[in-house]
Lab assay of single mutants.
Amino acid sequence: TIDDAFRAIERAIQAENEGRYREALKHFLDGGEMIVTAAEKEASQKVRNLLLHKGKEVLEWAEHLAEWILE
């Protein structure tokens, strides 16, 4: 659900702030994927587009974090 997705993102932010970057990455990926999944089930085109945009933002952040971890 969207609530689960945002809880995962909150955990990711907390982990990132505490320097637990790999854990943060996992939570960002989980949250982003949950948002995209919820968007695919959404009946309203406007809400679907907003959710897809937010999911994409979260997944892009996860990608940047992963690249930073690997440096």
Results as ranks from 00 to 15, higher is better:
residue 18 E to D: 09
residue 18 E to K: 06
residue 42 E to S: 11
residue 31 G to F: 15
residue 29 L to H: 05
residue 28 F to S: 01
residue 55 G to E: 02
residue 22 R to D: 08
residue 36 V to L: 15
residue 59 L to P: 00
residue 38 A to H: 06
residue 10 E to Y: 10
residue 38 A to I: 13
residue 41 K to E: 07
residue 1 T to S: 10
residue 71 E to I: 09
residue 69 I to H: 06
residue 9 I to D: 00
residue 27 H to N: 06
residue 18 E to R: 09
residue 52 L to C: 14
residue 60 E to H: 13
residue 4 D to E: 12
residue 60 E to Q: 11
residue 42 E to F: 12
residue 69 I to K: 00
residue 18 E to N: 08
residue 37 T to F: 08
residue 22 R to I: 11
residue 53 H to D: 09
residue 54 K to W: 15
residue 42 E to P: 02
residue 35 I to S: 02
residue 33 E to D: 09
residue 64 H to F: 06
residue 45 Q to L: 11
residue 15 A to R: 02
residue 50 L to P: 01
residue 51 L to H: 01
residue 4 D to N: 10
residue 50 L to F: 10
residue 62 A to N: 00
residue 70 L to Y: 08
residue 1 T to E: 09
residue 5 A to Q: 02
residue 1 T to N: 09
residue 1 T to K: 07
residue 48 R to T: 01
residue 29 L to Q: 08
residue 20 R to G: 02
residue 8 A to T: 12
residue 1 T to A: 10
residue 14 Q to M: 07
residue 33 E to T: 14
residue 15 A to K: 03
residue 69 I to A: 03
residue 29 L to W: 08
residue 26 K to M: 08
residue 27 H to C: 09
residue 23 E to S: 04
residue 52 L to T: 04
residue 15 A to S: 04
residue 60 E to L: 13
residue 36 V to P: 01
residue 41 K to T: 08
residue 54 K to N: 02
residue 18 E to V: 05
residue 9 I to A: 02
residue 12 A to M: 05
residue 24 A to L: 07
residue 36 V to F: 14
residue 21 Y to N: 01
residue 22 R to H: 11
residue 33 E to M: 14
residue 15 A to E: 05
residue 19 G to Y: 02
residue 17 N to W: 11
residue 64 H to W: 10
residue 4 D to Q: 09
residue 15 A to L: 14
residue 40 E to Q: 13
residue 1 T to I: 11
residue 29 L to G: 01
residue 19 G to P: 02
residue 64 H to K: 14
residue 11 R to C: 11
residue 47 V to R: 09
residue 35 I to N: 02
residue 28 F to A: 06
residue 70 L to E: 12
residue 66 A to R: 12
residue 64 H to G: 05
residue 31 G to D: 02
residue 2 I to V: 09
residue 11 R to F: 09
residue 31 G to I: 14
residue 45 Q to N: 06
residue 71 E to Q: 12
residue 30 D to N: 11
residue 59 L to I: 06
residue 3 D to Y: 14
residue 51 L to Q: 00
residue 68 W to C: 07
residue 62 A to P: 00
residue 23 E to D: 12
residue 48 R to S: 03
residue 20 R to K: 07
residue 47 V to H: 04
residue 50 L to N: 05
residue 10 E to V: 11
residue 40 E to G: 12
residue 11 R to N: 05
residue 67 E to R: 14
residue 10 E to C: 14
residue 64 H to S: 08
residue 4 D to Y: 07
residue 57 E to W: 12
residue 26 K to L: 08
residue 62 A to W: 06
residue 20 R to C: 09
residue 13 I to E: 02
residue 27 H to Q: 07
residue 28 F to P: 00
residue 23 E to H: 05
residue 12 A to H: 02
residue 6 F to E: 04
residue 11 R to S: 05
residue 44 S to Y: 08
residue 8 A to P: 00
residue 9 I to C: 06
residue 37 T to Q: 14
residue 41 K to I: 07
residue 21 Y to A: 01
residue 31 G to W: 10
residue 47 V to P: 01
residue 37 T to D: 07
residue 46 K to V: 12
residue 17 N to D: 04
residue 61 W to E: 01
residue 47 V to Q: 05
residue 23 E to P: 01
residue 1 T to Y: 08
residue 54 K to H: 06
residue 58 V to S: 01
residue 39 A to K: 02
residue 13 I to Y: 05
residue 65 L to A: 03
residue 49 N to I: 11
residue 69 I to R: 00
residue 20 R to H: 07
residue 42 E to H: 11
residue 49 N to T: 07
residue 44 S to M: 10
residue 49 N to V: 06
residue 58 V to N: 00
residue 3 D to H: 12
residue 24 A to K: 01
residue 40 E to M: 15
residue 70 L to A: 12
residue 11 R to H: 07
residue 67 E to V: 10
residue 46 K to W: 15
residue 39 A to C: 12
residue 61 W to T: 03
residue 22 R to S: 10
residue 51 L to W: 06
residue 30 D to A: 14
residue 8 A to G: 02
residue 56 K to D: 02
residue 66 A to V: 05
residue 16 E to H: 15
residue 68 W to D: 01
residue 71 E to K: 12
residue 9 I to R: 02
residue 55 G to C: 11
residue 33 E to C: 13
residue 36 V to K: 12
residue 14 Q to R: 11
residue 33 E to R: 15
residue 52 L to W: 06
residue 71 E to T: 12
residue 25 L to D: 01
residue 18 E to F: 06
residue 33 E to N: 14
residue 32 G to E: 03
residue 35 I to Q: 02
residue 40 E to R: 11
residue 67 E to W: 12
residue 23 E to T: 04
residue 53 H to A: 15
residue 57 E to Q: 14
residue 21 Y to P: 01
